[in-house]
Amino acid sequence: MHPAPSLIVFTTLSGLGFGLMAFLGIDPPAKGGWVMAVFAALALALAGAGLVASLWHLGHPERAWKALSQWRSSWLSREGVLAMATMAVFGLHAALIVLAGTQVALLGWLAALLAVATVVATGMIYAQLRAIPRWHSPLTPLLFVLYALAGGALLAGQVTVGGWLLLALGAAQLAGWHLGDGALAASGTTAETATGLGHLGRVRLLESPHTGRNYLLDEMVFRVGRKHAAKLRLIAFALAVALPAAIALLTEPHHLLGGVLVLSHVAGTVVARWLFYAQAEHVVGLYYGARARA
C-alpha cells in the first residue's frame, strides 16, 4: 500500500497521545497541578495533531463530521467517536486535577480505557481488511496498542513499565513481521482464484488494462525492495525497541538520556509505520501481475 505521510503522522502521533492519556488517567503525576497541566496538554496536542493530519488524507475534509455517524458497522467511524469521547473524558479528568486539585479515580480509569479502545479501533480499521492479508491479523491491533502504550509510558516518565512494554512490543513486532511475510500465501488468494482460470494452467498478465498509471496502482500496488525492507526493519527495531529498552531497563535515565530514549522510540515507530503500509500487499495486485511466479 502507498505509505501516505498523512496516515503515518496521524497513527504515530495520535497513538502516542492516547498512550500518554492512558498513563495519565491511571497514574497522574504526584506533583499534580502544573506538571499535570503540561503532560495533559502534550497528550491532547499529540492526539489532536494526529487527528488533524488524518484530515489531510480526506478528499472532502469539510464533511468529516459525517464519519461519526456509522459507529454501528464501521471501525473508522468508531475510531472517530472513541477519539472524541476519550479527549472529552480525559480533558475533564485533567481539568479537575489541575484546576480543582481533585483526582476522580473512576474518571481517570474511564479515560484510560477509552484511550486504549481508540487505539484498538485504529488497529481494527486495518485488521478488518481481508483484501490486505498482512494486516488481516489480530496482531495488527495488538501492535498498535503496544506501540501506543510503550510510547505513552516513556512520555509519562514511567520508564520501567515502558521498558517492559518495549520488550513485549519487540516480540510482537518480530512475530508480526514473520507472520506477515507469509500472509498473502496463507490467504489462499492467488492469480488463479482471482481470475478463476486456474484450471487452464498458470495465469500470467499479458496486457494491463491501460498503458499508464491508475488510482489502484498508485494506491495499492506500492513495492518496496526486499533488501531495503530488511535494512529498514533493522533500523526500526533498533530505534523503536532495542535502544530505548536498553536505556530504560539498564540505566537510570535523567532528562537528557530520557529525551534520547523518547526521540529514538518515536523515530523508530515512524520507520516501522512506513513499513507497515509499504509492505502491505493488496490482493488487487494479483490482477496486475504482482507476485507473478517465475
Partner: peptide, 14 residues
C-alpha cells in the same frame, strides 16, 4: 462521501 478511500482498500477486486 468524504473521500477517505477505505472502501477501495476493502474491495479485493479493485
Amino acid at each position: 462521501c468524504i473521500g477517505c478511500g477505505l472502501c477501495a482498500w476493502a474491495c479485493p477486486y479493485g
